[in-house]
Amino acid sequence: QWKVGDKCSAIWSEDGCIYPATIASIDFKRETCVVVYTGYGNREEQNLSDLLSPICE
């Protein structure tokens, strides 16, 4: 189960590419979260089910 502060990978809606991110907040009722893309600072809402394991850098 994901928690705030977890590192993950998420698909950015603008280009469909996968980027490393950190979970900033979680809404368990809606099963969504807000991620912050590492190195970019962009925030975006994602479905918890769409999150991927962190990418090894």
Rank of each mutant, 00 (worst) to 15 (best):
Q1N: 13
Q1S: 12
Q1P: 10
Q1L: 07
W2R: 00
K3N: 12
K3G: 14
K3P: 15
K3E: 15
K3W: 14
K3I: 13
V4G: 12
V4D: 14
V4F: 05
V4I: 07
G5Y: 08
G5P: 10
G5A: 04
G5V: 03
K7F: 12
C8D: 01
C8N: 00
C8S: 00
C8G: 00
S9E: 11
S9P: 07
S9D: 07
S9G: 09
A10I: 09
A10R: 00
A10N: 04
A10W: 08
A10S: 02
I11F: 04
I11M: 07
W12C: 12
W12I: 08
W12M: 07
W12N: 11
S13I: 09
E14M: 14
D15G: 07
G16T: 01
G16W: 08
G16M: 06
G16S: 04
G16E: 05
G16D: 07
G16Q: 05
I18V: 12
I18S: 05
I18L: 12
I18T: 04
P20T: 07
A21E: 04
A21P: 07
T22L: 11
T22R: 06
I23D: 04
A24W: 12
S25H: 06
S25C: 07
S25F: 09
S25Y: 08
I26G: 02
D27I: 09
D27T: 02
D27S: 01
D27Q: 01
F28S: 10
F28D: 11
F28Y: 14
F28K: 10
K29E: 14
K29H: 12
R30N: 12
R30G: 09
E31L: 14
E31F: 10
T32K: 05
T32R: 03
V34D: 02
V34G: 01
V34Q: 00
V34S: 01
V34H: 00
V35I: 12
V36Y: 03
V36M: 08
Y37E: 01
Y37I: 06
Y37G: 01
T38F: 10
T38P: 00
T38V: 11
G39R: 05
G39W: 14
Y40D: 05
Y40M: 15
Y40I: 13
Y40R: 15
Y40T: 15
G41R: 04
G41K: 04
N42W: 15
N42A: 13
N42I: 15
R43V: 09
E44K: 00
E44D: 08
E45Y: 03
E45P: 05
Q46R: 08
Q46E: 06
Q46L: 09
N47Q: 10
N47W: 13
L48Y: 05
S49G: 10
S49Y: 06
S49M: 06
D50S: 04
L51R: 01
L52F: 12
L52M: 12
L52Q: 04
S53H: 09
S53G: 11
P54M: 08
P54R: 10
P54G: 08
P54Q: 06
C56F: 14
C56S: 14
E57L: 10
